[in-house]
Simulated assay, not measured.
Amino acid sequence: MKTKILFLSAILPFIFIAHAWAEEVNYVVIEKQAQPFQIEESDKEHSGIVTDIVKEVFKNSDYQLTTHTYPFKRMISIMEQKKYKNWVTFGSPAWPGIQNENLSTLPVYNVENVMLIKKPGFKYEKSSDLFGKTVILMDGFDYPGIEDLVKQGKIKEIRVKGHSAAFNILDRPTMAKFTGFIELKARILYNLRQVQRNTDEYLMLDVGDIADNYSIHLAFSKQMDKNIQEFINNKLSSLRDEGKLENIVNKYSK
């Protein structure tokens, strides 16, 4: 027994030192705007498509994953200020700014933009069908094709901070015939379920001509350690080949 105690006494300091030296990776979450990609709930663990993928990547790894949650604009500011060396969040080659500067080799999701309208709504086949109407857009996000039409005065915009606000506007009788909410299909479906709206009361229209569909990747800080990036990219390849990426996406999309 004495020998065992001495042995443990000898190795415990090395265990603690190894833990202290574990390289930290900072996972950055957008507060209240990124569901179902990032879902934060009080008194519960973070979840969502991107969050579950990030957790799976670093599961049983030698890295220490630390999660930070910020409002969107503050998140961008913190990342631009290089507060964290090794940060990871999600981004896209279709987005401007820091969320497209250093992306994972593999995409983790392919998004589809739609326009949600309240039945019976209006007919939409081409961008000119929106002229004189109002589109609802999420505050803090970029919509290049749509914003061009807004600047030209051909359509009007209303910016909202949350999906419930968008649904409330659509539900107004005076707005239903002239207003559409343009957003990612997955986010609309998720948030309609969250607020227990009857999906049969709405239509989702394809707006690919003015709001391109695109891929979502994990986004890294430009100064992230190259070994960590290689680890993440290799792990994503393994998760794809094992079918785990698809399983995570299906969990929130169906």
Score class of each variant (00 low, 15 high):
220 F>H: 04
63 Y>T: 01
128 S>Y: 06
11 I>G: 03
110 N>E: 13
184 L>W: 01
34 A>P: 08
238 S>E: 13
129 D>S: 03
47 S>G: 09
139 D>W: 11
130 L>P: 01
55 K>C: 13
155 I>H: 06
115 M>A: 15
118 K>T: 00
167 F>W: 06
158 I>Q: 05
10 A>P: 10
100 N>E: 10
145 G>Y: 09
75 M>K: 13
178 F>C: 09
76 I>N: 06
190 Y>A: 09
203 L>V: 06
155 I>S: 03
67 T>W: 11
53 I>T: 09
120 P>D: 00
165 A>Y: 08
220 F>Q: 02
141 F>D: 07
153 G>I: 11
31 E>Q: 15
97 G>M: 04
99 Q>F: 07
150 V>C: 11
34 A>M: 12
106 L>N: 03
165 A>K: 15
63 Y>N: 05
124 Y>P: 03
209 D>Q: 13
224 M>I: 03
147 E>V: 13
199 T>P: 14
51 T>S: 14
28 V>P: 02
54 V>A: 10
232 I>M: 08
197 R>K: 14
45 E>H: 09
171 D>T: 11
205 L>E: 03
36 P>K: 11
29 V>G: 00
209 D>C: 06
152 Q>V: 08
119 K>Q: 10
99 Q>Y: 03
69 T>C: 07
177 K>L: 13
149 L>I: 10
28 V>L: 09
54 V>F: 04
206 D>M: 05
220 F>G: 00
69 T>V: 15
209 D>Y: 11
241 D>P: 06
129 D>E: 08
51 T>L: 14
32 K>I: 10
174 T>E: 15
34 A>E: 13
179 T>L: 02
52 D>R: 00
167 F>G: 05
250 N>Y: 10
64 Q>C: 09
26 N>I: 03
186 A>I: 04
119 K>T: 00
39 I>K: 00
172 R>K: 15
9 S>G: 15
170 L>A: 03
102 N>S: 09
104 S>I: 09
171 D>P: 06
75 M>H: 07
239 L>E: 10
141 F>V: 12
202 Y>L: 01
92 S>T: 08
223 Q>H: 03
174 T>C: 13
205 L>C: 11
242 E>K: 09
79 M>R: 00
32 K>T: 13
212 D>L: 14
162 G>W: 02
161 K>A: 07
89 T>C: 04
66 T>W: 06
189 L>K: 05
108 V>P: 00
59 K>R: 05
28 V>M: 06
237 S>Q: 07
76 I>P: 06
195 V>A: 14
151 K>R: 10
254 K>D: 12
53 I>P: 14
187 R>T: 12
50 V>M: 04
253 S>P: 01
76 I>S: 01
245 L>G: 04
199 T>I: 08
